[in-house]
Design a protein around this nucleic acid. Structure first.
Lengths: 195, 195
DNA sequence: ACCGTAACTGAACGAATGTTCAATATCAAA
DNA sequence: TTTGATATTGAACATTCGTTCAGTTACGGT
């Protein structure tokens, strides 16, 4: 057997990335073999190498895509109002975006160490530029007096850690709706850094 | 060659656990081989099986020891004063304890999925009982009116996520001392959940 | 109907994996 | 100094790993 009926790279490529993301998130990068990914797609292991030069590049592609999607989605959020409004938008955006992509978020926080130094640096830069978005809001809020933060950088990291933590416990259909979770976290963030 | 000069199980055992923790934290459980651990200890791979029945049990031992140490250390903290005092003690304790054991903390948050269902449940139970300690403080604070929390369980998880996040960026000898970091985080937590 | 190419197979590569075990050297106690 | 328990080696086991590639089939345009 060789080429399969109805096979197309525009279909197989995305499916490989989707299954890889699912398996990496569930079992960890190092614990998942290329053969497992191939089997989930319904293909032989050798076929994966038509879509990625090697295993690490597959992981890097997933992480980079996620981080760029994150930055693009935040850039698309309309900005108006003062710093407090911007902060509320950021809090709600972060929770919503991350809950919608739990697997990709998990990967981005857990599998960075499986990247080589160069790839690691690239992802780190993307992450830092996302953090800078929040830091800019906190700075603006301090300038106009609407926010009061003991240390801008630490508050940035503290808020992001707190918000990202939602992904570890939230389950759809649970006690609280996403809307309600946004509400509660925004309340805590506002009080934590409000003037 | 067989038994080595000066060899004792009270020395080799702890060294195996120490090297395993270091390597697991640095590269991930699945990415570290028994031979790598053995080499770090200065021993052959087969010797490890005098100290652990298998690789997963070695990981479980590290996680369980860490969680029990955490609970014991918190239990040893003298409790006096009102709920606000207790909350401050918890915040400072958590940051200090976690910074002193960065590798173990990292493992406990990242490698849970490499445990079998039974071992997983055991560690989860320990983690939940730690969360319950903070939750009890928040409840007491609401009862006596010193704290105001939109949702007790969520506030518990949010605070722990925020505090544990310190481990991802803190480096000794950096811009801020541990004492100062405690100060800053306590300020944010107090404002976030204070009445 | 034909052809070039895109998509995939299936087998193979050497290296590495977790784990077992008979053999053996060192230890502590008598 | 002998002895039995303790600690370790080093080779071996069957699997599995990431990756390569010659061969083969299906597709899309002519």
């Amino acid at each position: 057997m060789a080429r399969k009926a109805g096979s197309h790279s525009e279909i197989t490529g995305p499916r490989i990335r989707a299954e890889a993301q699912r398996l990496f998130a569930r079992h960890g990068f190092a614990a998942v073999s290329m053969r497992q990914i191939a089997a989930a797609v319904g293909v032989q292991a050798g076929a994966l190498y038509l879509y990625t030069p090697d295993k690490e590049a597959l992981l890097f592609d997933l992480l980079e895509t996620h981080m760029k999607d994150l930055l693009a989605a935040w850039a698309a959020v309309p900005r108006c109002g003062d710093a407090l409004d911007a902060l509320e938008r950021f809090v709600r955006f972060h929770i919503r975006f991350n809950l919608d992509r739990a697997e990709a978020v998990f990967l981005s926080y857990m599998e960075l160490r499986n990247l080589g130094p160069e790839n690691f640096t690239r992802i780190e830069a993307l992450r830092r530029s996302y953090e800078n978005e929040l830091e800019a809001i906190l700075k603006a809020g301090q300038a106009d007096g609407s926010l009061s933060v003991p240390d801008t950088k630490l508050a940035t990291l503290a808020i992001i850690a707190m918000l990202t933590g939602v992904n570890t416990w939230f389950r759809a259909g649970g006690r609280l709706s996403r809307e309600r979770v946004e509400e509660i976290y925004w309340d805590m963030v506002r009080k934590a850094v409000g003037a």
